[in-house]
Design a protein around this nucleic acid. Structure first.
Lengths: 298, 298
DNA sequence: CCAGGTCATAGCGAGAGGCTATGACAGCGA
DNA sequence: TCGCTGTCATAGCCTCTCGCTATGACCTGG
């Protein structure tokens, strides 16, 4: 059984690939050259692969090394998001820029935005508060937050607002599920009649779903399961608990590589706009304006 | 300075979230309850967040805990791909199913496919050989590989073939680059006249690019830089070395969250079909057929 | 009020992983 | 041809992390 490699070694490997030398990579991460050498050997042993072609004039990645670097890169990128996200949650109190966001945005978009902003301004501390869209509006309105991001269908009155991204709720099922092989879209009635795995009442995702179904003139069946985060819903679907309705942001990669199947529903528009909000009377300046610019590009 | 959390602790946290108890999660990963308890405390301290709400009847995730679990989930998923990928490279020799794939497919799609197949058949060992599309065809033709995946524009003669996915090369630039703010698409001539960061000659990506440009009647300028993997190209673009042409698979997430900008090119069709290939005379059976099925669904 | 469940603390032992010092070897210039 | 410089590897030591067991403190339910 191969144990999980530690992240520092992966980072080291990536650096060796970029810098072409074990010693240089060691210096970059602040460890001695022998230590780096030893760590890389350990990594190779633990993966059972030769990753580096060592010579007296430096080290180059082998074929396998290139592959592992590619995979490591993604692990490390995601880890960086985790770290910036965690930091933003942590420094909430005494940050220079106070951001409030609804859950989906906070989980899938905000860390990346904040990370990019901090790439431009490394000494800027950003605080992130996550609540539901209604409370985001209140926080921005009261000045407790400088900038908010909401997923609510109704832009709140009294606040300046601007769309930053689009999102769509989708019906997903595990691969074994009969719906995965359907060729015809589901009817709204069929969907409404089926017990689903959904987010808990009060969440933006759930609200959107209820409202869209209501507008289509149907009432949702009693949920199969109510869960407190998109991640939990996703896990339940993968475990084949049943169909679910969830933001495409949460399952984008699962669908891209076939782990989950998206089921289209006839005549149901589950798109929604993700918006930035800020106090109406103030023009956005400084870090808040920069963050908005980062969020808006794309 | 917050150090990188170790992956085992993240996994433990995810399990606590699912199982609702520290002890149960500890048992699941094969460590003692006190050890798990201690590790979780360490994780909380290192992130500076309270992740669990402990009670005498179990432990529940806090708000911050939910966020961290979501971010961790993605780190762990990527790590799982790394591990299956590495294993597939390692057991190449004595695997029960021999797969050969070109680089882009091997890096971005194959680990997920193999992971899903191994989810169904845990004791099946899959070996992965990565080379260029031409050699993949040769390996399959000679029987050295049971199933191949190629990104070449010309399906090789004498082999059964079936499309499994689509891919597209795209022009990407860093956000500061002038092209990032363009509203008009680039002309083919403009693109061809600009030195680009590209994959090395001989790679499927480079071949596709050369061929498409040739068909459009232009010749590519001398490359700014030639690199040996899509990951390296991506890094160069992020470092603002210059524009690059790379598979969308490599930069999908970067574009989705605005780290890189895609530039459209007028009248250039850079789509390509990714195909499975296998010997013409044999009907696919067993693991090879199963893997093809996994790759084809979506 | 005890039984069975939870999580936390204490103390100990082993091993991972850090460091410095040194060796081996290739390439380059004098 | 002979150092000089730069590469990576090995050896030996020491620290501190992280695992374990044993135990405590505390709810909940019978």
């Amino acid at each position: 059984m191969t144990r999980a490699p530690d992240l520092d070694s992966l980072k080291l490997l990536v650096l060796v690939g970029q810098l072409g030398s074990v010693g240089a990579a060691a210096e970059r991460v602040g460890i001695s050259q022998p230590t780096a050498s030893h760590r890389l050997s350990t990594l190779e042993r633990s993966l059972g692969l030769v990753l580096l072609e060592r010579s007296r004039r430096g080290s180059r990645l082998t074929e396998a090394g290139h592959m592992v670097v590619g995979w490591s890169q993604r692990v490390l990128d995601d880890l960086a998001e985790l770290m910036t996200g965690a930091e933003a949650l942590r420094v909430r109190r005494d940050a220079e820029l106070h951001v409030a966001a609804s859950m989906t945005i906070a989980e899938y978009l905000a860390p990346s935005w904040i990370g990019q902003l901090r790439g431009q301004r490394p000494d800027l501390y950003v605080g992130l508060q996550v609540t539901n869209s209604e409370r985001v509006a209140a926080l921005v309105g009261s000045g407790a937050a400088d900038l908010g991001f909401i997923e609510s269908p109704h832009p709140p009155a009294g606040l300046a607002t601007r769309p930053v991204a689009h999102d769509r709720l989708i019906v997903v099922v595990a691969n074994g599920h009969p719906w995965a092989r359907r060729r015809k879209p589901l009817s709204v009635e069929e969907l409404a009649a089926t017990p689903l795995v959904v987010r808990e009442a009060g969440s933006g995702t759930r609200e959107t779903l209820d409202e869209v179904l209501g507008r289509a003139g149907v009432a949702m069946a009693k949920p199969l399961l109510e869960l407190g985060s998109a991640t939990a819903v996703r896990s339940a679907v993968i475990a084949a608990t049943g169909p679910a309705v969830v933001s495409e942001l949460a399952v984008r990669t699962d669908i891209a590589d076939g782990r989950l199947a998206a089921v289209s529903v006839d005549g149901l528009d589950l798109r929604r706009v993700l918006r930035a909000v800020w106090p109406n009377d103030r023009k956005l300046v400084g870090p808040a304006a920069e963050l908005l610019a980062v969020a808006r590009r794309r």
